[in-house]
Computed example of a mutant assay.
Amino acid sequence: MRDPLFRMALVLGLLSAVGPFAIDMYLPAMPQVAQDLGTTEAGAALTLTSYFIAFGLAQMFYGPMADAVGRKPPLVLGVAIFVIATFAAALSPSIGWLIAARAIQGLGAATLMVVPRAVIRDMATGPAAARMMALIMIVISVSPMLAPLTGSLIMAWGDWRDIFTVLAVAAVISLGLILFVLPETIAREDRRGIEAGIMAAGARRLLSDRRFMGLTMIGGFGMASFFVFLSSASFVYTQQYGLSPTGFSVAFAINAIGFFTASQFAGRLAEKFGMERVISIAITGFAVMALMLTSIVWLGVDQLPVVIAGLFMANACLGLVIPTAMVMSLDPHPDIAGLASSLGGTIQMLTGGAMIAVTGPFMDNTAASMVPAIAACAMLAWLSAALSLPRLRLRSA
């Protein structure tokens, strides 16, 4: 704890975990929500969709705000919105109310995705930043392990409304960390005003930057594989394999272990071999593992241990990709780090949402449909790398 970068990474990780907890902690409650509010499973699923869409779009607001007024004000604003919306969700009298409350939750939680990345860029670059990002990924990656199980435990003595109450309390604690622990990391003289012309010029610069867009889409399709898994795993694990809500939570958690364990080596490997080489090898491993698992499942070997093991290995490769790609995409743009972070985050979230929409009609609540959808995301991520990273592009030529 004497290392200030470690301490900052821990604080940022705790803040960044609020958003994922708001998603994963809620998953075991969706059937109860549908029953309690008199809606269908599809209606309950809209509470996730509204969160994702608002979460993705709101990132475009917080990034420029962080560049203009500092890193702390947008964090305070976003978390305050999240707290109010979470209490509103706990009091929802109808599914429409809950869908709206979840959308407002997403609007608030988006700040916790954008601003921590910009804070990291303020404090470190290169391998040091990759190590900070990897430390944050520990906390974020623990969320899929703990959040569904925590939600199941809360429902054991309460109901789905109590999940939102616990989330609200956690958000209030996060607000305290922002106000009293997190320092401001951008000097006043380095701040940029919120001007449409400046934002448009910055956006054009980023969108025309082949490397930035390539790295963003690598992360986008990588995250999309998580989204596809998130939207389908509960049905696959409970219907095809007959797991209980607690069993689903445990199986769901195992898939995150490979990711966060591998992510802790991202900084060291990047320092030793170079970030581009790490991404090139890891993204290839991710695609190969996903395709191998698809082939095995389609051959009829679709037992639960096989699926979990295959996803574990694929996610281990992905754990090296995402934190490194995030750092590489921001490094060349220190003067618009907030805008770059928000634009990249928005593109990635919308990419994930689009992949859910595209693969959704093909889902039949079996591993035979879920795993190929994840493999499709992996191949698109690899293609993005092949088109944007010289090392991989030369190898695939």
Rank of each mutant, 00 (worst) to 15 (best):
L5W: 05
F6Q: 10
F6G: 04
L10C: 08
M30E: 01
M30T: 00
M30D: 03
V33D: 07
Q35C: 03
T49Y: 02
I53L: 15
G56P: 03
M65K: 09
G70C: 05
L91S: 14
G96M: 09
L98E: 02
I104C: 06
V114E: 01
A124D: 11
A124F: 07
A130Y: 02
R131P: 00
M133Q: 14
V142N: 09
P144T: 04
L146F: 09
G158T: 14
W160V: 04
T165S: 10
V166G: 11
I173M: 13
S174Q: 07
L177Y: 04
D190L: 15
R191N: 00
R191M: 07
G193H: 03
A196F: 13
L207Q: 07
S208Y: 00
F212K: 05
L215H: 14
L215P: 06
M217E: 10
Q240N: 06
S244F: 01
G247W: 03
F248H: 14
V250A: 06
A256W: 02
F259N: 08
S263H: 03
A270G: 04
F273L: 09
R277E: 01
V288G: 09
T294L: 03
I296L: 10
L299T: 01
G300A: 10
V301N: 14
I308H: 11
A316Y: 08
I322F: 04
S341W: 13
S342P: 08
G344W: 03
V358H: 14
P361Y: 06
P361N: 01
N365V: 00
P372T: 15
C377D: 09
L387P: 04
